[in-house]
Amino acid sequence: MAEIILRAEPRTVLGKQVKQLRRAGRLPGVVYGPLLGGTHPVTVDTRELSRFYHTFGASTLFTLQWEGGQEQVFIREVQVDPVRHTPVHVDFFAPNLRKDTTTSVPLTFGEENPAALGILSTVQTEVSVTGLPGLIPAAIDVDVSNLVEIGDSIRIGDLIVPEGITVDLDDEDIVAHRIAEAAPEPVEETEEAEGEAEETEATAEGEASDDAASGGDAEGSSGDS
């Protein structure tokens, strides 16, 4: 696999002044790790980082390059503005490549079997794994085509992961299973419908009373004659 590279620039602007960097399309960030002896402030192109993160996520080890240095890193966190929903800061973590590290890896679910019954319920969408940084996969594929009957399931122990990588969950934990579709809920009558029903019932009762009264008058007339 070709080396994955993201380019950065050293950053000297700190504190509240980083706003001007964001206005210029640069996202402030830091590089840190157990062997770096401190943090290295950097900036990356905001749009490029967004595309990169969408493509590779947080579990892909890649090379971050800047003038005067480079490190093998993971994207540890992207902070997002809660109102504008735009990135405001990024943390790059440079692990010790010779020691195990733990990170979350997303699960990628394949196509369902067209003959499958019920619906597919996914219990896990990502899993925590441990292993050497260079062995951690960007994602773990999950084959759900064999799940056909209600109750069929895939468990943690069924996942195929690279040698040297362990999933930090019990092998019997369910990843996905097929469940029966919920029965549709009965449609409740609206207040308007209930009102119309009451009005119809009242009208019917009124007509019945009128008919009874008319019948009584007719009998009285016959007796008089």
Rank of each mutant, 00 (worst) to 15 (best):
T101A: 11
E111Y: 11
D100E: 14
A115T: 11
G110A: 00
T103C: 09
H85I: 06
T86F: 00
Q79K: 12
P95F: 10
K99W: 09
F109H: 10
P82Y: 03
R84P: 01
D100T: 13
N96V: 10
A115E: 12
V83L: 13
E112A: 12
P114T: 10
T103A: 04
A116N: 01
N113T: 01
H89D: 07
H85S: 13
V88Y: 04
V83G: 04
L107A: 07
T103K: 11
Q79F: 04
A116C: 07
D100C: 12
P82T: 02
R84Q: 13
A94L: 09
K99D: 13
Q79S: 13
P82W: 02
P87G: 08
A116D: 04
L97N: 05
E112H: 12
L97E: 03
D91C: 03
Q79E: 13
S104H: 08
Q79P: 04
P87R: 04
L107C: 08
P95H: 10
V88R: 13
A94V: 10
F93Y: 14
A94H: 06
K99E: 15
E112I: 05
Q79V: 02
E112Q: 14
K99G: 09
A115S: 13
H89N: 11
A116Y: 01
E112P: 04
F109Y: 13
E112S: 14
R98L: 14
H85N: 14
R84C: 03
F92L: 10
D81F: 08
F92H: 06
N96K: 01
S104M: 13
T102L: 14
H85E: 11
T108C: 12
P82F: 00
E111V: 11
G110Q: 00
A94D: 00
H89R: 10
N96Q: 00
R98E: 14
D81T: 07
N113C: 08
E112V: 05
E111W: 08
E111T: 14
V83S: 07
P82M: 03
V83N: 06
H85W: 09
T108H: 15
L97R: 01
N96D: 15
D81A: 11
T108F: 10
A115L: 11
H89C: 01
F92Q: 07
F93H: 11
P95W: 08
F93L: 12
S104V: 12
R84D: 05
D81Q: 12
A94G: 09
N96G: 06
A116M: 07
E111G: 11
T102K: 15
N96Y: 04
F93E: 03
H89L: 03
N96M: 01
T101I: 10
R98T: 15
P82H: 03
V88D: 08
Q79I: 01
V80H: 11
P95T: 06
P114Q: 09
F92K: 09
F92T: 06
V83I: 14
H85R: 13
G110R: 00
A116S: 08
F92D: 02
T103N: 04
